[in-house]
Nucleic acid binder design. Structure first.
Lengths: 159, 159
DNA sequence: TCGAGATACTAAGTAATACTTATTATCAGC
DNA sequence: GCTGATAATAAGTATTACTTAGTATCTCGA
């Protein structure tokens, strides 16, 4: 039987598109001298959205382990984009807040993200693009659900 | 103009979906005891498709620098999935070939990729899924073109 | 109330993926 | 045959992830 290797299979496609988007984004951020990566930008935007937020909550929203989140926050704190403040309601916890520099850098990355988006959408109609984004949201939601079930299962097995 | 930054913008969406797909894929590969990552699988499949191939050609197809490719091949070689053979037509170059173990592991990863794809496509009609893949292919092609132009420009600037 | 177990965070260690720069061997063109 | 380009890699760095283990603190039940 002939080998079926689909170079355009879902996994490779989505990985390629994400990789290309990230590399292009990183290149333009670098060019603009903003001094952070797409991954750090992702964290910044979630912090912006969530307001002062506990690290464990932020980790969950980012879909990473608490330790991974902590390391990312270390870098962002070193760069002066966020602060960790004690949570008055729980002395174990810390609240993550954006600094003025963090707010500023988010404002400046917006136009850059817009140029990448425009480039990615070249040759597609607005309707096609919206459909595309809608499907991406749908798939993300599906996969997030699967991942959460798997993690719950893993915790159960561990217990 | 105000730039609306949110986690549902294109860059974050596609990154999230790729991350979730990769993590889920890695989890199932791990579960099956195949002993490699999605990234390594990507390299394996490109080697399979290209046949005996020079490392620099492979690097270009993978869209990474020669050194990154070399490191990935080190891991694959250590695991016994590939071999580096001297290129008879150029003594500087090496040809990368799959071993029997490499062929075997590609066969076994196929069904795993299929389960992830099925899960990702839950709740979408076949037509919607095809449209989605078509748009991903289109965007990949657009971004690849942009990246190649940028690299050509960088080489020119360096010269 | 107090003690056990859970939770919030971090230190330490590991691994994969990616880059840059510099080096060695070899090739190709003048 | 020399010179510059090319193929691969060594060395060093950074990011993004994980696990395990440890400390401080909280919460709930006996």
């Amino acid at each position: 039987m002939k080998f079926h290797i689909d170079p355009d299979s879902f996994g490779f496609l989505v990985n390629d598109v994400a990789r290309l988007t990230r590399l292009e984004m990183d290149r333009r951020i670098e060019e603009a001298g903003l001094g952070f990566t797409t991954g750090e930008g992702r964290a910044l935007i979630h912090i912006k959205r969530a307001g002062p937020v506990r690290q464990n909550v932020l980790a969950e929203r980012l879909g990473v382990e608490a330790m991974t989140c902590s390391t990312t926050l270390d870098r962002l704190e070193a760069k002066g984009f966020i602060e960790r403040r004690p949570d008055p309601s729980d002395r174990r916890a810390k609240l993550v807040v954006l600094t003025a520099a963090g707010e500023d850098v988010i404002e400046r990355v917006g136009p850059i993200a817009a140029t990448v988006r425009e480039d990615a959408a070249l040759g597609l109609s607005p309707a096609e693009w919206e459909t595309f984004l809608g499907t991406l949201r749908h798939v993300r939601s599906t996969l997030t659900g699967i991942r959460e079930s798997a993690q719950a299962q893993a915790r159960e097995d561990a217990a």
